[in-house]
């Protein structure tokens, strides 16, 4: 069953379809939230709130974008709130992602992760959505709520910066 059909079933209150949708997307939404927030606890909150919003609001999905785009849009909104609540001190500061020790042997993989982490948030998001999720620019623009040109420019700068950081 394709994703959009699954959402229709969820809108009808089908619990099995909801479980299936969760299986397909929870991990991806979590990784996306983690990319935005760099915090495991916040990422889990965002994932859960996103899935709960989907259960409640599946009827609002209009099928004009991919289901993943729709989900990432909701997650982005939830992440914005999570970040704001945290800034206001409404939740305990969570454990931060450990930065790899720069004095240790710099494995290539560690360097890649560090380079990604060092990107400005909007660029990191574009890199995730394009390279990990394989979303076209048009869909990324929908998620970020910006013109396609802005996404292309973010991609251009992100790629240049990654290339510089990862030069052997």
């Amino acid at each position: 069953m394709d994703d959009a059909k699954l959402v229709t079933k969820v809108a009808q209150g089908d619990g099995g379809a909801f479980r299936e949708l969760y299986e397909r997307f929870a991990d991806r939404v979590y990784r996306y939230a983690f990319t935005l927030l760099r915090d495991r606890h916040l990422a889990e909150d965002v994932m859960q709130e996103t899935m709960i919003s989907v259960w409640k609001g599946a009827g609002m999905f209009e099928g004009r974008s991919q289901v993943s785009t729709w989900l990432f849009g909701i997650a982005r909104y939830q992440a914005y709130h999570a970040r704001r609540s945290e800034a206001k001190g409404e939740r305990l500061p969570a454990e931060r992602v450990e930065e790899p020790d720069p004095s240790g042997p710099m494995e290539r993989e560690v360097r890649v992760q560090r380079a990604v982490a060092s990107l400005p948030p909007e660029q990191r998001e574009v890199v995730f959505l394009a390279f990990y999720e394989g979303l076209p620019y048009e869909e990324i623009a929908r998620v970020q709520g910006v013109p396609e040109g802005t996404v292309k420019s973010r991609m251009f700068h992100a790629k240049r910066r990654l290339a510089e950081e990862l030069r052997p």
Binding site: Y22, Y30, R40, Q48, I52, E109, V112, Q113, V116, F131
Partner: peptide, 30 residues
């Protein structure tokens, strides 16, 4: 670069196993 980035994003651990139970409890009431 794409290959390396995909690997980097995939390397982070995913959501905890128990997350579904909390979601289910707040939606399906399971």
């Amino acid at each position: 670069l794409t290959h390396e980035l995909r690997k980097a994003f995939a390397q982070f651990p995913g959501p905890p196993k128990g997350a579904w139970l909390s979601v289910a409890a707040r939606t399906l009431g399971a």
